[in-house]
């Protein structure tokens, strides 16, 4: 924890990649992985602490950045009755935590045809009738490591509000902790995925300018232009590159047009 104090021969120990090291003077703490005690450096995440202890993950590690949902972990702390939930790649170890990873939790998923589905809540209810087994215990929301209001989106679906459910569930990383805690045995995250796709495809307004652009491209409008570009030498390209006009930052979308319109 100091400046490299000299350029002499004492080589400063520097961590590389994701391999953690224990610099002089750093403290270790005991954690219990599935009941077995390991001493690990204090500031590490559960994931890196387990690796430090010698585990090599096969299951239970994906993105290592808190977004893929591969590493849900349940733990208790000594003398505390509460169950805690977290992502192993995001949660810092605490002394005397007893942890277990739940890399997979079975949850039924209903297949459907996105092209044929009727974009109404009844379609969702029909695919997932267990929705109505929800007893509103709120265990799902308490277990969510992303802070998603799971119970609220489930209630919105039951009430038929697809748009609200789509937005409320947007941060879901499908780790499955909600399903693992559900008294009504719902596969919340699969239902949320279905609802978001119905919203994105049928309820959110379509982009009209995109439809036009697709037509232009399919009609071959840009084919010759792109053909020409591929044949240009570097000097020609550089000249055109420098001449590009830049859409002003503050211009509202769809209002600005360049002076030179021959390449549009």
């Amino acid at each position: 924890m100091s400046q490299h104090d000299c350029d002499c021969a004492t080589v400063q120990q520097v961590a590389t990649g994701d391999r953690a090291i224990l610099p002089k003077g750093a403290k270790t703490i005991p954690i219990y992985v599935m009941g077995k005690r390991y001493e690990v450096p204090e500031t590490l995440t559960i994931m890196k602490a387990m690796e430090y202890a010698g585990f090599k993950f096969l299951r239970g590690a994906g993105c290592r950045g808190g977004i893929c949902g591969a590493c849900p972990t349940v733990y208790r702390k000594e003398g505390d009755y509460k169950l805690h939930f977290g992502l192993a790649c995001q949660t810092v170890v605490e002394p005397n935590m007893y942890l277990a990873q739940i890399p997979f939790y079975p949850a039924n998923r209903a297949s459907y045809d996105i092209e044929a589905i009727e974009p109404v809540a009844e379609s969702v209810h029909a695919l997932y009738p267990e929705l109505f087994r929800c007893v509103a215990c709120n265990n799902c929301t308490k277990a969510c490591p992303m802070g998603v209001q799971v119970l609220d989106y489930i209630s919105a679906i039951k009430q038929g509000d697809i748009a609200r459910a789509a937005h409320l569930s947007f941060d879901c990383i499908q780790c499955g902790l909600c399903a693992s805690r559900c008294m009504g045995e719902l596969p919340q995250y699969h239902i949320a995925q279905l609802v978001r796709r119905i919203y994105g495809k049928y309820i959110q307004p379509k982009a009209e300018h995109l439809r036009k652009r697709v037509q232009e491209i399919e009609s071959g409008k840009y084919d010759a232009m792109l053909e020409n570009l591929q044949k240009m030498d570097k000097a020609q390209l550089e000249k055109l590159y420098k001449e590009r006009e830049r859409e002003p930052d503050m211009a509202p979308l769809g209002t600005w047009m360049p002076k030179d319109t021959q390449y549009l």
């Binding site: 495809k201 959110q204 307004p205 982009a207």
Partner: peptide, 14 residues
């Protein structure tokens, strides 16, 4: 978009 991805859009769909 056709697969149902939720893009950030303006209220008119742009």
């Amino acid at each position: 978009e056709s697969l149902g991805m939720m893009f950030n859009k303006l209220p008119d769909g742009r």
